[in-house]
Each structure stands twice: as C-alpha cells, then as structure tokens.
C-alpha cells in the first residue's frame, strides 16, 4: 500500500473536521500504510499538550507519525518542550521528501 502524507493546516480548536482527518490517518495506518501527519500553520496549535494534543498522542499510538512544522511553531511561540507526546518538530523539507518519494499527499 502506498504511503500517505496528510498535511493538517487547521486549528483543532476551531475546526470540527480535524478529528475526522486524524481518524482518516489512523484508518490508513490500520490498513498497513505508512502515514505521516504534518501539522502546519494553525494546525500546530493543537500540537501542544492539551485536549487536542491528547488526540495526537493517541494518533501516534496508532502508528501514525506526527510532525509539526518548526517554522509554524516559532511563529506561534510554541516551544518544542510544550509539544504533546509523540509529536516531533520537523522542517518543511520533510514534505518534499515524501512528495519526492511518491507518497499520496492531502492538504486539509
């Protein structure tokens, strides 16, 4: 099965569609696909240890790699040590790595 890159740009505290997007990521991982969720822009707001962060911790527990754009984190003053468990900072170059490797990419 092809790998997937799910780019999540929406604030989890603002959009009710975010949990559905994360559920898609978990379902794809459950089917055996390599899945990366890349949080960017206001998508990183939910990466902090919080109610939304717990959902991301559960997502990483289901085998989904969850990364947060380091630029978006800096823009919003979110320190690395404030991130929810399992969420790692990453450069936007990781998006290019996955696109170049042929991962199916979605933007939400």
């Amino acid at each position: 099965m092809a790998g997937y890159l799910l780019i999540a740009s929406r604030d989890a505290f603002e959009s009710r569609a975010v949990p559905d997007y994360f559920a898609l990521a978990a379902d794809l991982a459950a089917e055996g696909a390599a899945v990366t969720v890349f949080l960017v822009e206001n998508g990183v707001l939910g990466a902090r240890r919080s109610a939304a962060g717990k959902a991301l911790e559960a997502l990483t527990g289901s085998g989904v790699e969850v990364l947060a754009d380091d630029f978006s984190l800096r823009e919003r003053g979110i320190a690395i040590d404030a991130l929810a468990g399992g969420v790692a900072p990453a450069s936007i170059d990781i998006v290019l790595d996955h696109l170049a490797a042929g991962r199916k990419a979605l933007w939400h």
């Binding site: 780019i7 696109l99 042929g102 991962r103």
Partner: peptide, 10 residues
Amino acid sequence: SDNTLVIPTR
C-alpha cells in the same frame, strides 16, 4: 510530475 500537491481554499 513525480507528485502533485493541491493546496485548496478553505
């Protein structure tokens, strides 16, 4: 292309 990314409006 090797890959395509659509960045849609909200």
